[in-house]
Amino acid sequence: MYFTNIQKLENLLLVAVPQDLMDDEVIQLRREVLQAIRQYGSQVVLLDFSRVDICDSFFGRFIYSTSKMVELMGAKVIIAGLQDIVIETMVELGMTLPDVDAVLDLDDALALTRSLSQNGGAPTEDSAEIETLTLEG
């Protein structure tokens, strides 16, 4: 059993990735993210990894496939909050996620979202209001 915390902030979908996910839970998390995009019409999905301390190649594949699927739905995945040790292990493993954008934190993610909105898609109306959606599986 695990809890995923998916929050909506402006046109950003905030996903707090839990510390230790089993492989099948990873698949379920991906499904929930896709559902939430459909539900809110979010343009950007921010995967917050600050709680994750082990990231192996399966996890890398999850980030990569989620990013591709989200792209197909016309949105974009950015990642944030990867711990230094996790990054060190990832690059030594050879897992550099070349097609995924990363930002330092939520501020930068919001700035990026806004710049995307201004450059391209229509900005969403409900600006800083946060809606919380907790899924249990």
Binding site: S57, R61, E92
Partner: peptide, 11 residues
């Protein structure tokens, strides 16, 4: 998969 399991583990 990403195909990094064995080669990456070795590193």
């Amino acid at each position: 998969g990403l195909g990094l399991g064995l080669s990456g583990s070795k590193r």
